[in-house]
Structures are given as C-alpha cells and as structure tokens.
C-alpha cells in the first residue's frame, strides 16, 4: 500500500511535469485494458467439471512444438506429466525425447543427455538476461501456474492465442497487436499456425483446435490435481450428508426428553 502511495505521488509528479498531455495518455491507457474474452466451452469448467485428458495430451504436443521454444515449465517434472494418462513406459519415452544439459566435456563444450522422469522440464533460456536478449527486451513468463495467475483465465488465454493483428514496432523489438493483452500489444509473435503440429489422434490441427488444446494443457499443468480434488470432494460430501442425516435423527431423539 505504501508502495502504491509512492506510485501515486510519482504519477502526480509526472502529471504536473507533463501537464495536459498526461490526461490524454491516461485516457488512452484505460481504453487499452485487455478486452473481455468471449466465453468458450471447457471440459474442466464448473465445480464438477473434469479435464479432457486427450485434449491435455494434444495440448502437450502443442506446448512441445511451439511454446517450449520460449517458455519454461520450471516447476514440472517429466514424471508429473504421467498424470495426463500416460503409462510408466510412455513417461520414460516422453522424458527421453528431451535433451537435458549435463555440464561440459573436456573441450569445454556443452554436453547433453536424454531426460529422465525425475528431471525438471528444461528451460529454453539459461537466464532472464538471455531470454530478454532473445526476445526484444521481453522475458517470456514461466507457464507452470499460468492457468491460475493469468487474469481472465482460460477464455482469455484462448482468445489471446487466436486474435493476433498486424505486427507493429521496429526490427529490434518487434511487437504485435493483440486486443487481449495489456495495452493491446505483445512481444510474443503469433505462435500458432494451421498444421504446424500434427495430432496423432486425427484431430485437425487448426489454430483454434491447437489453441483450445494448449489452453486445456496449461490449465491442467497449473493444477494437475484439480480432478482428484473434485473426485475426493464428491465422495466426502456424500459421506458427510449421510452422517449428517444420522446425527440429525440422533440429536432429535436425544433432545426429545428435554422440555422447551
């Protein structure tokens, strides 16, 4: 709050310096808040929804092919991904398809090895500075919890992925118009293209389908236990309802002796 107060003081100071021009820019900025995303249908929405695991798996394919070039999933182990419906063998194969940095060889060159289920998913950049240098000054955020922390939730992630406009800005720091980003501008180039990914289950790899699936994957990876939690909840609620009925009867019987 105090920090905010300083910010307010600072903005008042700048307002005084810039004069009337500031009012105009403030107006412009409030009009550039992200648009409200049109609601989509999601398998996981609502208190008793559950993840469509085939969509989660297709979304993982999109993540590997597209997102992982710039974004990390720092908190996730390969073994965590087995919960999207993989057998232990499939999990090992999935881990082995990734290259993990393994120090240097005698000549000082980077060495790599195949991934193991207990490895973290590798980050595409060695440091935030490297990420910034490679992306025109912007750091691609980590996606481990993006489904929880992204304001607007799944609907806005989907809308953002499918609503790119014209590129703006210079060569050095390319920016792209997108009505679902703050300021209606983003440093992320349009990530999805028709048939850039091929789905093994025969789904057509349109931009919409890829966006839908990768959003489902990101929501799932943000809270992989959401389904277990809901399943547990249904069981416990039924059990408690049963117990409550029994105790209501018991209470009425015990209290039946008491005169009001």
């Amino acid at each position: 709050m105090f920090v905010k107060k300083y910010l307010v003081i600072a903005s008042v100071f700048f307002a005084a310096v810039q004069g009337a021009g500031c009012v105009k820019s403030a107006d412009a900025q409030s009009s550039l808040l992200p648009q409200k995303a049109p609601p989509q249908h999601w398998s996981f929405e609502g208190p008793v929804g559950h993840f469509d695991l085939s969509a989660v798996q297709r979304g993982y394919a999109v993540f590997v092919k597209v997102c992982s070039a710039c974004h990390s999933l720092k908190q996730v182990h390969f073994s965590d991904l087995s919960q999207m419906g993989l057998t232990p063998e499939q999990t090992i194969a999935l881990a082995e398809s990734w290259q993990i940095a393994a120090g240097h060889d005698e000549a000082g060159h980077f060495k790599f090895r195949k991934g193991l289920p207990d490895d973290f998913l590798p980050s595409p950049y060695s440091s935030p500075a490297a990420a910034r240098a490679a992306n025109g000054g912007a750091v691609p955020p980590d996606l481990s919890r993006i489904g929880l922390i992204h304001p607007g939730g799944a609907d806005r992630i989907y809308a953002m992925l499918t609503s790119y406009g014209e590129p703006v800005g210079g060569e050095k720091a390319p920016r792209y118009a997108n009505p679902y980003m703050i300021g209606h501008i983003t440093a992320m180039p349009p990530p999805l293209h028709d048939n850039a990914v091929s789905f093994t289950d025969g789904h057509p790899a349109t931009v919409q389908q890829q966006a839908h699936d990768v959003t489902t994957f990101l929501e799932w990876v943000s809270e992989p236990h959401r389904d277990s939690k809901r399943r547990l909840g249904v069981g416990v609620v039924l059990y408690l309802c049963f117990l409550i009925i029994i105790f209501v009867i018991l209470k009425r019987r015990i209290w039946s002796h008491v005169r009001k």
């Binding site: 939690k229 809901r230 609620v237 408690l240 409550i244 105790f247 209470k251 209290w255």
Partner: peptide, 21 residues
C-alpha cells in the same frame, strides 16, 4: 451431539469450498 452435528455441517461447507470453489 449438537456440537458434532454442527461440526459435520461445517465440514460439509469446508469440503465444498476446498474441492469445488
């Protein structure tokens, strides 16, 4: 018995919030 009943009802609310909302 009254306390247990109240605890069970609160537990129901607890689980509903924890698991569904």
């Amino acid at each position: 018995v009254k306390d247990v009943l109240s605890i069970l009802v609160c537990a129901l609310a607890f689980v509903a919030v924890m698991c569904f909302w």
